[in-house]
Design a protein around this nucleic acid. Structure first.
Lengths: 165, 165
DNA sequence: CACCAACGTTGGCGCGGCCAACGTTTTTAG
DNA sequence: CTAAAAACGTTGGCCGCGCCAACGTTGGTG
């Protein structure tokens, strides 16, 4: 065997997971900066946007839609309610639930936030022409969809390490 | 004017920044799970990998290469030194510095981690065929490179909101 | 010599993402 | 109808990551 200087396994540097994380870090910095101009954070926007999109709902339902934990939802609703961007009222049909409703002020604020965020997206995607932006969105969507509901629960039935394939 | 039911601005739902963040969340969960099997976290791996790649260096230098803050670097080195995966020795040529060196045990551990992580990447990218994986990596790389050094500092001279373009 | 820069270290902060537990209310089974 | 199970809101807590400010020490530069 001729031996030779075979650069043996040549480990995979710059992992895709790290790349993704770096991109997310950048995106979040830009978005946080934008939302910060309105004194809000990502959770606040997520809640307002979901309310605007799907209408009033219980905290638990909103948590399911946004991916925000029930306990964090309490605080988020508190924040927005204090600022009168959202209203929390008991559900007469089910006394366990609160119905969260976006207020007029909340709607107006959301319009402003949407503008801020649209600009933020543009800043984030600045280096990519439209075609590539679509490509990226498509790829990420497929990734996220695939791992979809596995939104948590790394325990029950998970490979975690798959040898061969 | 014929009016018509124009769905007026039709705000951009599912922001690219959010998509990216979701993907990163998924990736991090998978990676954390993998590293957790070795009782380590992402910072630990980043440090070990960088040491293996670029050789011994001061904590500050390592922090610059990995993006880990100096203060967090202290803790990370502490952790790894405790486990004898890394050695911290004073630099004789500059008594401000510590020289961090990866140990033999650290090297062996790193090999294991690399295997774990390779599998993790595969899990993460599972839904994408090889071409798409390359595409994704290319796009993310361009994004990250562009925002490159702006690795922090959202203050000094930043648009944050660009109207037109 | 005085000054400033770099270094390691300590201590702290905020956000996002989690989990466990409790009391209340509703639904479902027996 | 009643007992068990489930859903809900809430409290309190935990961890990791990403940050920043400050200090004492050491090294370079004017």
């Amino acid at each position: 065997m001729h031996t030779g200087d075979s650069p043996p396994p040549e480990r995979l540097r710059v992992l895709p997971s790290r790349l993704t994380n770096q991109a997310a870090l950048t995106a979040n910095r830009i978005v946080d900066h934008a939302l910060g101009q309105a004194g809000l954070r990502r959770y606040h926007y997520a809640l307002l946007a979901t309310l605007d999109e799907s209408g009033p709902a219980s905290q638990a339902a909103l948590g399911r839609r946004t991916g925000i934990d029930r306990s964090d939802m309490v605080a988020t609703v508190n924040d927005l309610a204090e600022r009168h961007l959202v209203r929390r009222s008991p559900d007469p049909d089910d006394r366990r639930r609160n119905i969260i409703t976006i207020t007029a002020a909340g709607g107006e604020q959301l319009v402003r936030l949407d503008a801020l965020l649209a600009a933020a997206q543009d800043t984030f995607l600045a280096p990519l022409p439209d075609d590539d932006r679509r490509q990226l969105i498509d790829l990420l969507t497929r990734l996220v969809d695939h791992h979809g509901d596995r939104t948590a629960r790394p325990s029950e039935g998970w490979p975690g390490l798959r040898p061969g394939t």
